[in-house]
């Protein structure tokens, strides 16, 4: 009888420690960092306009746009396109994205378009752009906002986050932060 109950008793104790105790302990620690524990919401003008690291959809010409998303930036069901590299449907989608982008950004040459603005991210809510992908949108944003291009260009440069510790990982620009700064210009 004892040998029958032993595995159950051990499992119950392990469950108490690891299924409930450990998360509880960590939740307690997280209370010291309430902002981060809640996913770092960004507040502007008294309302939550997004989350620090969660990409959101921008469609208006006056904002910088993030990368294409397989889930249309729905942060409740994230995911990638999972398109195979040789899938003809995927090629058609990329070509369509490129045509649209060139149409909406007159004056930009094909060779200036970084691959990331025609390919979908892994999470579907990639919050960042590479500096090149932000610079290529400067002319459009400046025109829509009646701002000198140099001013917008400067804003992008100011918002480039350099690699971690100066050399680890790529430099990138947070799209939400950049657009908030744009709105704050006037």
């Amino acid at each position: 009888m004892k040998s029958f109950l032993q595995p159950i008793l051990v499992s119950v104790l392990l469950l108490l420690v690891f299924g409930f105790g450990f998360p509880g302990l960590l939740w307690g620690v997280a209370q010291l960092l309430p902002q981060r524990a809640a996913g770092s919401p960004v507040v502007a003008g008294g309302r939550v306009v997004g989350f620090e690291r969660i990409g959101q959809k921008f469609t208006q010409a006056r904002y910088f746009w993030g990368r294409p998303s397989a889930v249309d930036y729905n942060a409740a069901i994230t995911g990638a396109s999972n398109a195979g590299p040789n899938n003809p449907d995927f090629h058609a989608v990329v070509r369509a994205r490129l045509d649209t982008f060139l149409l909406q950004n007159p004056g930009v040459a094909k060779a200036q378009v970084p691959a990331e603005v025609v390919t979908a991210s892994a999470s579907g809510i990639d919050p960042d752009l590479s500096p090149a992908a932000a610079y290529v949108q400067v002319a459009r944003v400046a025109r829509a906002r009646h701002l000198p291009a140099a001013r917008v260009q400067q804003l992008v440069t100011q918002h480039i986050e350099q690699p971690w510790l100066g050399f680890m990982g790529p430099a990138h620009v947070s799209v939400l932060r950049l657009n908030l700064a744009l709105d704050a210009l006037r």
Partner: peptide, 10 residues
């Protein structure tokens, strides 16, 4: 930059 489909910028 390489094959960016299904990858993140950061």
């Amino acid at each position: 930059a390489g094959n960016l489909e299904g990858k993140e910028i950061r």
